Amino acid sequence: MPSFRNGPVEIAYLDEGEGYPIVLVHGFASNKNITWVYPRWVSELKRHGRRVIALDNRGHGESTKLYDPNDYDLNAMVGDVRALLDHLGLDRVDMMGYSLGSRVTGCLARSEPQRVRSAILGGLGVDMIEGGGPGENVANALEAVSLDGITDSVGRTFRAFADQTRSDLKALAACLRGSRCLATREEIASIAVPVLIAVGTIDEIAGSARALAALIPGAEVLDIPDRDHMRAVGDRAFSAGVLDFLSRRP
């Protein structure tokens, strides 16, 4: 698996297919394989004529693990994606994120619209401005000795997921504490690229997709029927809606 260094951090990534590039940014406690390869996003996008690039965020997957929350400031995570574009010589791309990856995607789309042709925000609605993602209860669950005894339902869900993905629990706790950054309404309203917001209809973590879309000029909403935060990624309605959105880019 290829990798590159952004300062002291080594970032693992995949780069497959040919055509206009799309960069995929996974969510908290996941990795490029769990979010994008196994649910067949990479193969589907390649089949539709796209060059597909997906990275492991710092602290996740095969990328460098860090244990200081300050190393996971959202600007640092956005900087990893920017450095990846520079490393690959890509001037402009489509981007798709999920959950934390949508925070990264939205931030880059807002700050550098010349590099982002369109942005797909999966698994994140109005909590982009009203909620900083999983809270201290999840960090505590990640730092617990084991899943046994964790009574907080959200914390237990994330800990079970992190155990399943064999993640570095201390790195994830640091990431959670360092990346809980909210955008302002003014920042969100300044996004000037085409945006699709895709959220499961029973997702209790993301917040309302329509409330976020109301703040972004021209944003579209894609409902992922009967899917919660953890089960929306591989849904066919999600992939079909994204492929339709991308097919309408000039």
Rank of each mutant, 00 (worst) to 15 (best):
49 G>P: 06
156 R>M: 13
110 R>W: 04
26 H>I: 10
122 G>F: 03
114 Q>P: 00
136 E>W: 09
78 V>P: 09
121 L>I: 01
7 G>V: 05
38 Y>Q: 04
11 I>C: 01
59 G>D: 08
81 V>C: 11
133 G>F: 03
51 R>G: 06
3 S>V: 04
10 E>N: 03
170 K>N: 10
81 V>W: 08
54 A>S: 09
231 R>L: 08
217 P>F: 05
225 P>K: 15
216 I>R: 00
248 R>S: 03
27 G>Y: 14
73 D>R: 15
75 N>S: 12
247 S>L: 13
112 E>G: 05
83 A>Y: 07
79 G>V: 14
23 V>N: 11
214 A>D: 06
194 P>G: 12
76 A>V: 09
164 Q>S: 08
1 M>L: 01
176 L>S: 02
5 R>F: 06
169 L>Y: 05
232 A>K: 11
178 G>V: 09
114 Q>I: 04
155 G>H: 07
139 A>P: 02
65 K>M: 05
61 G>T: 07
1 M>Q: 08
198 A>C: 02
107 C>V: 13
229 H>C: 02
59 G>K: 08
209 A>Y: 08
233 V>C: 13
175 C>K: 07
96 M>C: 13
182 L>E: 07
141 A>S: 15
138 V>Y: 02
53 I>Y: 07
231 R>W: 12
222 L>Y: 01
119 A>K: 00
177 R>D: 12
213 A>L: 01
212 L>T: 00
219 A>P: 00
77 M>N: 12
40 R>P: 00
139 A>T: 11
223 D>G: 15
205 I>G: 11
2 P>D: 00
11 I>E: 05
167 S>Q: 13
50 R>Y: 01
190 S>Q: 06
38 Y>M: 07
225 P>F: 13
85 L>R: 06
185 R>C: 05
142 L>K: 01
201 T>V: 04
151 T>R: 15
180 R>A: 13
161 F>T: 10
188 I>V: 11
185 R>N: 13
87 H>S: 02
105 T>D: 11
176 L>H: 04
244 D>N: 14
24 L>S: 03
193 V>A: 05
89 G>S: 09
11 I>K: 01
185 R>D: 12
83 A>P: 09
75 N>Q: 12
224 I>W: 13
236 R>A: 12
25 V>H: 11
20 Y>M: 06
147 L>G: 09
44 E>A: 13
68 D>F: 14
152 D>P: 06
109 A>G: 08
207 G>P: 05
48 H>R: 14
165 T>C: 14
69 P>T: 14
86 D>S: 13
136 E>K: 15
45 L>T: 05
101 G>I: 03
17 G>R: 10
182 L>P: 06
119 A>M: 01
150 I>D: 00
218 G>M: 01
41 W>M: 01
97 G>V: 04
200 G>V: 01
223 D>S: 15
74 L>F: 06
214 A>I: 00
135 G>Y: 13
96 M>K: 09
11 I>L: 04
152 D>G: 14
146 S>R: 06
102 S>E: 05
40 R>I: 02
23 V>P: 00
149 G>Y: 08
170 K>E: 12
44 E>C: 03
38 Y>P: 01
106 G>R: 03
97 G>M: 09
49 G>S: 15
38 Y>A: 07
